[in-house]
């Protein structure tokens, strides 16, 4: 099907979301399947077809998701039911919605803050297990259990690490 003239095209809306935990690289295709699965599971095939979600762009932890205009509410509720993407626990935090991708790209530039990665010790003993610092942003510190299999991730703050 050829491109339609602008007046006949479907009106779209774009939703900017932040993928938590920060520091995780999420494949756009995997995220698209997670979004489609959540939308279909919550609203059914018919409404999912009307919403027609698509992952348009990603920049670090920020992702732009497209939907049909008027279905932003349905999509945002569906996005809040996403808990995992390819067996990795994630959460999508909705930041903004816009009619153009450019506006959201500008918004992303404003949101980007340099990470402060000054931690006194790289490894910590928590409950007889050794954890290493994985990600550090502001007050937030994520640590991952050292090892090869079944490594747990803990979400802490700098104060928690100081108390250890």
């Amino acid at each position: 099907m050829g491109a339609r003239p602008p007046t006949l095209r479907e009106k779209r809306r774009y939703i900017l979301v932040s993928v938590e935990p920060s520091g995780e690289i999420i494949d756009r295709k995997d995220l698209y399947f997670a979004v489609c699965d959540a939308t279909t599971s919550l609203w059914g095939d018919v409404t999912a077809a009307v919403i027609s979600p698509a992952v348009i762009a990603s920049d670090g932890q920020y992702v732009i998701i497209r939907c049909r205009r008027g279905s932003e509410r349905e999509l945002s509720i569906a996005l809040s039911t996403i808990t995992c993407c390819r067996d990795r626990s994630i959460a999508l935090r909705i930041i903004a919605a816009s009619g153009t991708i450019d506006t959201l790209r500008e918004r992303i530039q404003g949101l980007k803050i340099p990470d402060n990665v000054t931690v006194s010790a790289p490894e910590y003993m928590i409950g007889e297990k050794l954890y290493r610092v994985h990600n550090c942003s502001g007050q937030k510190v994520d640590v991952i259990e050292k090892g090869f299999k079944n490594t747990n991730r803990l979400f802490l703050t700098r104060e928690d690490l100081e108390e250890l």
Partner: peptide, 18 residues
């Protein structure tokens, strides 16, 4: 049980609309 399972007030309003 995790920060990843917490939802924003606005998101919960949306979920409660269900």
């Amino acid at each position: 049980r995790s920060v990843l399972e917490m939802r924003a007030v606005r998101e919960i309003s949306g979920i409660c609309s269900l």
